[in-house]
Nucleic acid binder design. Structure first.
Lengths: 343, 343
DNA sequence: CTGTTAGCGCGTTCAC
DNA sequence: GTGAACGCGCTAACAG
C-alpha cells in the first residue's frame, strides 16, 4: 500500500497524489476529489519514514528524561507534548535511566532519528559537557536547568525566588528559628534554593544556624536521616524547609517516630508539589514547580529553534514557583491575618 | 555527513561502509579498520530514518498510554523499555490524552512511523473495536487488559485473584462485615475484583451486603463520595476494600472528616500500590499490581510478534497481584499469628 | 571480499 | 494543473 497504488487507482501520477496530501491548493478540485476518494477507498496512509527522508524534515522533537515512572518527569513530558501537538510536531521521548551515559546515548539516538530538536532534562551531565553539546547541536534546549553559558537555551525555575518564597511564608507566620534540609550541592537548584531562603531570612533580620543546615539526597530516606541529624543537635527550631517533597516526607516520618507533632511542634514546608504532598498527614505545604508549564515552554523553544519561524525571544524561559498553603505550617503569630486553607 | 562521505574518505564504496556497520564479519579486517577509522574521524552516525526505509525494519515498537504524568502508566512504560532495550529495539511512546479518539490516532500514528509492533494500554476503546484492530494489525498487543477474543495478545493482571487476595487477608484478620468501593462497571477490572472478593468471602461463609457495595470512579474524589454514601447507610462494617489506592485515599479522608479511626474503627485495603499508598497515614495496606513486569512482558510479546524469532508461548501473560501489608488493616483476632509489618 | 546497480516510499524540481 | 525524472541516505542483490 504505497502512494503508487493510490496513483494507479486514481489514474494520476504519484506526484499528484503527493500534492493533494501536502499542497492540495495546487491541484484541480476534480482530480483532488478523485485522489481523496482513492485514498479513502484504499485506506492509504503515508509512510512517515519515507516522507521524512524525502522532505528531510521529520516534524519530530525528542525529549530526554531520567525515567518514565516518576510523575516529576511525566508532568514535563506531558507539557512538551501539549505544546508541540498543535504545531503539528510529534514528541518522542527517551529515558536516560538516570545515568550520564544514558543521557548522551539518548540524545544522540534522538538526533540519529532525525529529530529536528531535542529537549533534555539533564541531571548527570556537567556544565562543561552540556555547553559543548549545546554548541554542537544548535536546536537543543535544556529543560528545568539553567546553564550560564546558554541562558537563551535554558528553560528553568527561579529557585532563588522559590527558596525566598518559603522563607517569607515561614517568617510571615511568626517562625524565627529555622532549619533546612538541602539537596546535594552538586545541584545548582539546591544551592539556589538555599541562597534564596537565607537571603529572605536576612531581610527579616534572621539567620539560619549553620548546624541546622544539613544535606539530603532529595529522596525520602535522605530526608529521614537528615531530620534525625537535625534533631540530634538538640538545637531548637520551629520550622523546617526541605528542598523536595520526598525529603519532607522523610522528615515527617522522623518526627512521627519521635512523637513530634507536625505542625504543632515543628512546621515543615516542602518543594515540588508532587502528588504525595496532598496525601501526607498533615497535608504538606509546599513550593510548587510549574513542571507542565516548563515542559510546554521547552517544547516551544525547541520548536522555535528547529523552525526559526517564530521569534524565540517571546518564549518564557524563567518560571516562578508558587506557594501551596496546606496544613504543615503552624501560625505562631496571633496577629497574622492569613488563614489556613487546607485543600 | 553521509555514508558517501565516509566511503570517499576511506576510499571504498558505500556498500562496504554499510557492511562494516551492519555485518562487519563479511569484510576484510584491513578495510574494516580503514572504514572504522574514517567513521570515527568524521564522527559519522547513520541516519536511522534512511536505514529504516532501505531495510524496511525500524527496530522500533510503539506504546500508547493515557498520559505521561501518572506514575501508573510510567511504570509500565519503563517496563516496556527495559525489556526492549537489550533486544536492540527502541520504544516510542505516545499519549492518548485519555480519549478514545486519541487512542486511535496514536495507534495509527505509531504504525505510520513504521513501528514493527504496538503495545497499547486502552481504557477508552470497546472490546469490539479492539478486536477489529487486533485482527487488522497482527503485531499489536494489549497491556494490562484482557480481551476474550485475543487472550494470546493480552498481557494482564488476574484481577479475580487480586480481589480474592484482599478478601482472604481481611478474613484472616478476623473481619466479617465488609464494604467495597468498586471502579466503574464498564471496566472489566472492577467486575473481576468484585467477583474475586465476593467469591473468597463466600468460601469463608461470608457475604457482602448489597448496600455496602458502591461505585466510584477510581479517583480520590469518587472514593470520598462513595465512602460518605457507605457511612450514611448506618450499616456497620469493620473493613473496606477499595478498587484503587486513590479511592482509598478519598475514603480515608472521609473517615478523617468524621473522626473515624483507621484502622481502629474501619480497616481499609487498597489496590495498585502507587507511591501515595506509602505516604498515607496510616500507611495503606494494598494489593500491588506488578506494573513494571506487565510492561516488560508486553514489550517481549510485541517483539516476539514483530520478529517471530522467539516462541511467543514462553512469555508470561497473566500476572498475579501481591498483598503489601502496611498499617491500614486492624487485627481483630487475637489468635492470629501474623504480625503487622509497616514499612 | 568488494563494487555496481537497484530500489525503499515519498517530495520536489522541471518541462509540458 | 499535471507528469516524468531525480534524489533523500541507506541496504540488498548480484556480479566479479
Amino acid at each position: 500500500m504505497t502512494i503508487l497504488d493510490v496513483s494507479n487507482y486514481a489514474g494520476v501520477s504519484t506526484a499528484t497524489v503527493s500534492r493533494v496530501i501536502n499542497k492540495p491548493e495546487l491541484v484541480d478540485a476534480k482530480t483532488r476529489d478523485l485522489v481523496t476518494d482513492a485514498i479513502a477507498h484504499l485506506g492509504y496512509r503515508p509512510n512517515q519514514v519515507a516522507r521524512g527522508l524525502a522532505s528531510r524534515s521529520s516534524r519530530t522533537i525528542g525529549v530526554v528524561i531520567n525515567n518514565f515512572s516518576a510523575t516529576y518527569y511525566g508532568r514535563m513530558l506531558d507539557g512538551v507534548d501539549r505544546a508541540l501537538r498543535p504545531l503539528g510536531y510529534k514528541t518522542i521521548a527517551e529515558s536516560s535511566r538516570e545515568a550520564s551515559e544514558g543521557e548522551r546515548e539518548a540524545w544522540l539516538s534522538l538526533l540519529d532519528r532525525q529529530c529536528e530538536a531535542v529537549v533534555i532534562h539533564s541531571d548527570s551531565l556537567e556544565d562543561e559537557e552540556l555547553t559543548l553539546l549545546l554548541e554542537r547541536y544548535p536546536t537543543c534546549v535544556l529543560m528545568n536547568r539553567f546553564l550560564a553559558s546558554h541562558p537563551e537555551r535554558s528553560i528553568y525555575l527561579d529557585n532563588v525566588r522559590g527558596g525566598a518564597l518559603a522563607a517569607r511564608f515561614l517568617v510571615k507566620n511568626g517562625h524565627r528559628d529555622m532549619a533546612m534540609i538541602c539537596g546535594p550541592d552538586r545541584f545548582y537548584e539546591a544551592n539556589d534554593r538555599a541562597r534564596g531562603f537565607k537571603e529572605e531570612l536576612a531581610r527579616a533580620g534572621l539567620t539560619l544556624a549553620p548546624e541546622l543546615t544539613v544535606q539530603g539526597n532529595f529522596r525520602e530516606q535522605g530526608g529521614l536521616e537528615a531530620m534525625d541529624t537535625l534533631l540530634e543537635t538538640r538545637k531548637p527550631f520551629t520550622a523546617l524547609f526541605c528542598h523536595s517533597d520526598e525529603m519532607a516526607a522523610g522528615a515527617l516520618e522522623a518526627c512521627r517516630r519521635r512523637d513530634i507533632g507536625v505542625p504543632e511542634q515543628i512546621s515543615i514546608i516542602g518543594f515540588d508539589d508532587l502528588d504525595v504532598a496532598r496525601h501526607m498527614t498533615p497535608k504538606l505545604t509546599t513550593i510548587r514547580q510549574p513542571l507542565g508549564d516548563i515542559g510546554e515552554a521547552a517544547g516551544l523553544a525547541a520548536h522555535a529553534l528547529a523552525t526559526k519561524t517564530e521569534s524565540a525571544d517571546l518564549i518564557q524561559r524563567v518560571f516562578v514557583a508558587e506557594l501551596v498553603d496546606r496544613a504543615s505550617v503552624a501560625r505562631l503569630r496571633s496577629n497574622d491575618t492569613s488563614t489556613s486553607q487546607p485543600d
